[in-house]
């Protein structure tokens, strides 16, 4: 896994141009609603993998619930792809650029004059000048053929819960390995009575997690045990899945008590190091910020807090870096930084 140290993007959604340097192992992105936190996360995901660009574009559309259906026409694909561009109405002259800096990255553009057939195409140009042209009329086939191939990254969003099947698949790979202990240890932080966990098929043939509690004879459905433990399991399994890769979390643990969030942060810091995962998290929550600095101040992990700030007079968005010490002062003095 190559650590993403910096980001430079142009014309991606609301970002005409955005540069962020000094990214860390664990990055917390804050900012007001609609400033582009989710879009930034998407751009990071696009940056993390320059080999499966179409796959990632498709994932982003799914996460936003904008994915094309089986009967979409080429025109509809064109409209959907336009939504990625800064200037959605005039995409003819516009090129999206995703890179670590101006020299290292790839560009995406829409061409309406394909050399072969005058059809609309998506053009991807890499840093080594290799060009890939994909006819929009082929997109239906491409999207239908996309399966969850072996990636070491995950985009977790509260709007989209991972199917239990996916989680149980990850569990299948982890069970009885040394990693199983990380999971149990993590769950024990929230509920000390948990001894073992397995996934079973329930009556509807879907996978469900059950746990053995110390003082109870019958195993218990994890679903019945509260949001904190369930989110902990999802997070732990996802972290394990992302070993040597990247994890993107949109709207971290919204709605959970700050102490539960603190526990999650602890696990995230530990496992980001142990499993070599670079992590990007967005939040608008004060509880999340509070929990983050409570854990970060006693931890060595390399972290960064990045605020996306709009400058309406200049019509631009900038990234402002905060250190853990800065957030500690803000929390102590009750100064609003979000």
């Amino acid at each position: 896994m190559k650590t993403i140290n910096s980001l430079y993007i142009k014309n991606y959604k609301l970002f005409k141009e955005l540069r962020i340097d000094n990214l860390a192992q664990v990055n917390l992105i804050i900012g007001k609603n609609n400033v582009g936190k989710t879009s930034l996360l998407e751009a990071m995901m696009l940056l993390s993998d320059n080999q499966n660009i179409v796959h990632n574009l498709f994932n982003i559309l799914c996460l936003r619930k904008l994915s094309p259906n089986a009967n979409s026409s080429t025109q509809q694909y064109l409209e959907i792809l336009r939504t990625f561009f800064h200037n959605q109405t005039n995409t003819c002259n516009e090129t999206i650029f995703i890179g670590a800096n101006e020299q290292q990255g790839y560009s995406i553009s829409l061409s309406h004059n394909n050399t072969i057939s005058r059809q609309s195409t998506l053009v991807i140009k890499q840093a080594d000048n290799t060009v890939e042209e994909i006819l929009l009329s082929d997109f239906q086939q491409i999207f239908n053929g996309i399966t969850n191939h072996e990636t070491h990254q995950a985009f977790v969003s509260t709007r989209n819960e991972e199917p239990e099947d996916f989680l149980s698949q990850i569990w299948g790979k982890v069970a009885l390995s040394e990693k199983e202990q990380y999971l149990i240890d993590g769950l024990k932080i929230i509920d000390d009575n948990i001894e073992k966990l397995v996934f079973i098929d329930d009556t509807a043939h879907t996978k469900k997690a059950i746990v053995k509690l110390r003082d109870t004879k019958q195993p218990v459905l994890l679903n019945t045990m509260g949001d904190g433990i369930n989110l902990m399991l999802r997070t732990l399994l996802t972290l394990v899945h992302c070993e040597n890769g990247y994890l993107f979390i949109d709207e971290f643990a919204t709605g959970l008590h700050w102490s539960v969030q603190a526990t999650l942060w602890k696990m995230i810091f530990q496992l980001s190091l142990k499993l070599n995962i670079q992590i990007f998290v967005t939040t608008h929550s004060l509880d999340t910020l509070y929990a983050f600095q409570e854990i970060a101040k006693h931890d060595d992990t390399n972290v960064a807090v990045i605020k996306l700030q709009k400058f309406p007079k200049k019509n631009k968005i900038k990234a402002i870096h905060f250190k853990t010490e800065d957030i500690m002062i803000a929390v102590e003095q009750n100064i609003e930084v979000r």
């Binding site: 605020k307 700030q309 402002i320 800065d326 002062i329 100064i335 930084v337």
Partner: peptide, 22 residues
């Protein structure tokens, strides 16, 4: 009017408030 409760905290609050953009 924000009472930062000390000279060092005042100076730190000054820096953070500027950076916060709020």
């Amino acid at each position: 009017i924000h009472d930062a409760n000390g000279v060092k905290p005042s100076l730190n609050t000054f820096s953070i408030a500027i950076k916060s953009g709020n």
